[in-house]
């Protein structure tokens, strides 16, 4: 049997996992979190999800041009002829 025979099954199972994950996160997360006055550590610059945006941009450019994957954290689209 060819590999492509399994492709629709693989994709749909992944999509199902994504939906399941999203629903469980959204419903389970209402009990998580902090009060506004408990954000002292989260408000620090080093706790930002992208704490060094220029480092991230430079790394994205390097790995986009040297590997077959891109994006994930942010858009991995075109932008240069390096790949």
């Amino acid at each position: 049997m060819s590999r492509s025979y399994f492709k629709p099954y693989r994709v749909s199972r992944r999509c199902y996992s994504v939906i399941l994950l999203t629903v469980s996160l959204a419903s389970g997360c209402s009990s998580l979190g902090v009060q506004p006055w408990e954000r002292d550590l989260l408000a620090k610059d080093e706790m930002a999800l992208t704490s060094s945006p220029l480092d991230a941009a430079l790394d994205d450019h390097i790995y986009f041009s040297k590997e077959a994957s891109s994006g994930g954290k942010s858009f991995g689209g075109g932008g240069c002829g390096c790949n």
Binding site: V18, T22, C29, L32, G33, R39, L41, L42, G71, F75
Partner: peptide, 26 residues
């Protein structure tokens, strides 16, 4: 041409921890 869609979910777990989840389609 490159068309990207990204769905993201960010959650503060507690005073010390936060998480992010993204799904991207390109």
């Amino acid at each position: 041409t490159t068309a990207d869609i990204m769905l993201g979910f960010t959650q503060v777990i507690n005073r010390r921890m936060l998480m992010q989840f993204n799904y991207s389609y390109s």
